[in-house]
Amino acid sequence: MYWLTECHNAIQWGNSLRGDLFRSKQLSYLVLLAALVTLVVGLMLFLVDPNIKSLFDGIWSAWVTMTHVGFGDVVPVSFFGRLLAAGLILFGLVLFSLFTAVVSVALIGRNMHALEMDIEQIGQKAGRIQTGEDRILDELARLHKRMEALEKQLLSNTETTTD
């Protein structure tokens, strides 16, 4: 029964995260950018490379290259086709890095209110500690003055008894 509860909690968490991600404009822009790059580079591959026989093959080749799947069923053979594919590989790396960053921001942003409360509590505790430290330092300074006065009195008493 415990695992059913955990599975239910995991599904709720996943749905909540999905909602947060779909509300994020950055993710929408990222997906739109990926789609546009796939279409444009797919068209360019179709126009430039003789091994790419149709527009669909060009788009397919661009997609599997950008996502680093690389099935190998449709590959560019010309210099410019391979150059486009190399650029698409680098773009895919950047795309996945940005996707990871967007997901990280969504995950971290969900817990910011808890972090802000923790930081506020830490600030309050630090203020109380500082106040306590100030009182201790004041007491030490007072004790130091009393010790000096006692040492002077002891020194003057010893001088008068030795004379």
Rank of each mutant, 00 (worst) to 15 (best):
L84F: 15
V37D: 02
L33A: 14
L39R: 06
A35F: 07
L43A: 13
T67L: 06
F56T: 14
L21A: 00
V77A: 13
K25S: 11
L84T: 15
G87Q: 07
L84Y: 13
K53P: 08
S97Q: 10
F91S: 02
V74N: 03
L55N: 06
L39Y: 09
A85Q: 09
L88P: 02
V94D: 01
F79C: 14
L27E: 03
L30W: 02
T38P: 04
L21E: 00
L55A: 06
L45Y: 10
G87P: 10
D49K: 09
L93S: 10
L43H: 13
L39T: 13
S24M: 08
W13E: 12
F96Y: 05
V37G: 06
F79W: 15
L83E: 15
L98M: 08
R23T: 09
M44H: 12
D20P: 00
L83C: 14
V48Y: 10
M66F: 01
L36A: 15
V31S: 11
L88V: 12
Y29H: 15
P50H: 07
G81T: 08
L21N: 00
Q12N: 05
G81M: 07
L33C: 13
F91P: 02
S97T: 13
G58S: 06
T65C: 04
A62H: 06
A86T: 15
L45P: 02
L84D: 01
F46N: 11
Y29I: 10
K25D: 13
F99S: 06
G87D: 15
A86P: 10
F99G: 04
L55G: 11
F91W: 02
W60V: 01
Q12E: 14
V77P: 04
V94S: 03
A34V: 07
T65A: 05
S61W: 05
V69S: 10
F71I: 03
G58L: 05
G81H: 04
F80I: 14
G14N: 05
L36R: 13
Y29A: 11
A34Q: 05
L47M: 12
F96C: 01
T100F: 07
S78I: 09
L21H: 00
F46K: 11
I89V: 14
F46R: 12
L90V: 14
V64I: 06
A85M: 08
P76V: 09
I59N: 00
F22S: 02
V40S: 11
S16N: 04
G70F: 12
R18N: 09
G92V: 01
L93E: 03
N15I: 10
P50W: 02
F80E: 06
L32N: 06
F22H: 03
L55C: 11
V64M: 05
T100A: 13
L47S: 08
V37I: 00
H68W: 11
L88S: 05
G70R: 13
W60L: 05
L95F: 09
N15E: 00
T100D: 14
G92D: 01
A86F: 15
S54G: 09
